[in-house]
Amino acid sequence: MLNIFFGDMEDVIFNTSVYFKNVYHDEWITAPLSVEMIAEVDKSKVIDGGVIDSPVLGKIPPTSLSGGVKTLMLIENRPDKVFNATNCGNNCAKWLLKIAEKKDVTINLRYMMDFGKGNFNIKVLNDDRVVHCMEELVAAAIQYV
């Protein structure tokens, strides 16, 4: 399940780009889920663990991927940490839900991300409420962001 703490949170990795630069492994980049996320969010193609082909920037290292994709990979690969997912735009929402299908994931959000029109299971950690659609999520969490 996706667990979200909305608003200011202690002990969260806030600058996910810097953290990613210092901890990522090449295998993270070539994992099938990462390849899909990089293709959809960054419109870029993974060549190998150290090189990604971006239509705008050319051949780039993983550190030059978008802040959103880097945060998604951290969430997928370091479930022991809580990351500031505010660096993820709305186009990362479906990937957060997908990562959370397989395991319990906890993130910090400081804005009201749009998780779309479908149903989902999200636990709002501020008051331990489980919500199932955007209308419920907005009602539960708007006061915290």
């Binding site: 780009s17 969010v41 960054d42 419109k43 705008v56 920037l57 050319g58 991927l65 978008s66 802040g67 959103g68 994709v69 660096n87 993820c88 735009g89 709305n90 186009n91 990362c92």
Partner: peptide, 26 residues
């Protein structure tokens, strides 16, 4: 050589946000 940004600022505070991978950090 690869990217060009062009914009006008009119006030003391401007906010840039939106989807990931649009070129904000670049």
């Amino acid at each position: 050589e690869r990217i060009k940004y062009e914009f006008v600022l009119r006030r003391n505070l401007t906010i840039i946000r939106g989807d990931s991978a649009t070129g904000k950090t670049t």
